[in-house]
């Protein structure tokens, strides 16, 4: 039920209520109104036809980086 899949915004429709998003070659129309600052190129999480959040690239990078560090130190 609380499924949400990441997709990239490829086009924002006039008025900004709807946008086209893409994930792995699949395109959908979703409502964008809940993430008013989203822009083309952003990755959003889509739930029940609405983009509910813009994914934060820095945070993602940071958590992966931190974690990889931990694993490296551990393995070595």
């Amino acid at each position: 039920m609380c499924l949400a899949a990441p997709s990239q915004i490829t086009h924002i429709e006039e008025g900004g209520f709807m946008a086209e998003v893409e994930s792995f070659g699949n395109k959908r129309r979703v409502a964008l109104i809940m993430v008013p600052t989203a822009k083309v190129g952003d990755y959003v999480l889509v739930h029940a036809g609405y983009a509910i959040q813009i994914l934060d690239e820095e945070e993602a990078k940071e958590s992966l980086r931190l974690w990889e560090e931990i694993l490296c130190s551990q393995n070595s």
Binding site: M1, C2, F17, M34, H47, A48, G49, Y50, I52
Partner: peptide, 17 residues
């Protein structure tokens, strides 16, 4: 309209529309 807080606002915005 079922769901938790993830879904509830989507229903709210749809009704507004």
């Amino acid at each position: 309209a079922v769901g938790f807080e993830t879904t509830t606002p989507t229903a709210a915005l749809t009704l507004t529309k």
